[in-house]
Design a protein around this nucleic acid. Structure first.
Lengths: 195, 195
DNA sequence: CGCATTTCTTAATCTACATCATCTTTCCCG
DNA sequence: CGGGAAAGATGATGTAGATTAAGAAATGCG
């Protein structure tokens, strides 16, 4: 069952009996996403929370010079959405794209509201997810103002250990906030230092 | 009445009849804050939302090298709090300090909850404040990754027009994310260009 | 399997911003 | 209102990371 990963994720924060699990599962929809396929474009209203069970998604914005900036990755076991747009139901700034063929589970905004009515303890669960995204954003602002690229890379490594040797370097570079060229040079210097 | 500014602020988002206004006001507490006085320290749990009616507060973090990074200002008409800590009631990372003698209105977390029960439409109001802080943080991450110091300064100017010639330059520099020396140089060059 | 496209590496040069030092100006508290 | 501290200006020098260019390696798709 690919839903096991999701149930595990939920049970980190709230306990569900089997009736509640049933209700939860009835609101979910599995979705296969092909490599390079977009499931959200900037300017759209975000209608879904997406939980990845296999593969990997990325959330990114495009600045006025056409440069992409990766704000988050979603490997298996992670949720992804444009939190602002999802909450406010106003147009967002995030694009969400599959970096490889990906299996996911969709919880629509509408079903999320229904779920709150039928199993109120899910309010707690999604409140915690929102808090986590808040704290991550706050921390990221500070990190970008005070840390070097190398330090930011090591934060990436802690946050996404499974992605380190798994993702195109240019995606990691974009998350860390440097050019692919500099990132390549930086990595080879880090290896040299360690040797 | 210094509460007028606050009632105006609230009525931008929700309409209150006079009974509801009464209830709201009964939960508030005016507070005078002296220049250089802290009303929140990092590591503490944030217990209050603070609305400024006169003067100015700043929210900032201190990095591992002891350098301060200003995340937000609160001139008259603005709310300030460590949103993450306020919502989660866990220790936060923000310090909040008065940049000059300041008049403010305090709404404690506890009273905020009571207010939700007595006047539920305040849920909408504070939800919107939370959304605004979310979108501001998201935008700030992108801005810091893609804009020059000069562009970030012009965003500061739009966001806080009343503060431009009113605040120590080093505070603005810290918000923009540059050293005071570079900020001084940058400003004199911007003036030269315009002349 | 093989070719095209994407990704990675390395090098030279460039630039935005930091750091350090010194001097001047402003401001605030006794 | 006067003196001391904080803030600001300006110059010289240092550096993290960008840009451009060009070749090598990897990868995905027909």
């Amino acid at each position: 069952m690919p839903f096991d990963l999701l149930l595990n994720n939920v049970s980190k924060y709230i306990h569900l009996d089997s009736a509640e699990k049933e209700i939860f599962l009835s609101f979910l929809q599995p979705k296969h996403i092909k490599r390079k396929q977009f499931i959200l474009n900037d300017g759209e209203i975000c209608k879904n929370s997406v939980f990845v069970t296999d593969g990997c998604l990325r959330g990114f914005t495009v600045d006025k010079n056409g440069i992409e900036h990766v704000l988050s990755f979603a490997p298996p076991g992670w949720w992804i959405a444009d939190m602002y747009s999802l909450i406010s139901q106003k147009p967002g700034i995030l694009n969400i794209e599959a970096l490889e063929d990906t299996e996911s589970i969709i919880l629509s905004k509408i079903n999320q509201e229904k779920l709150y009515h039928e199993v109120p303890k899910f309010e707690r669960f999604f409140r915690i997810l929102t808090e986590n995204s808040l704290v991550a954003n706050q921390q990221r602002i500070v990190d970008n103002m005070s840390l070097t690229a190398e330090e930011r890379y090591s934060i990436f490594c802690k946050r996404y250990p499974t992605l380190i040797d798994h993702l195109p370097q240019k995606q990691i570079a974009s998350y860390v906030g440097v050019t692919p060229e500099f990132f390549s040079r930086m990595r080879s210097e880090m290896i040299r230092k360690r040797a």
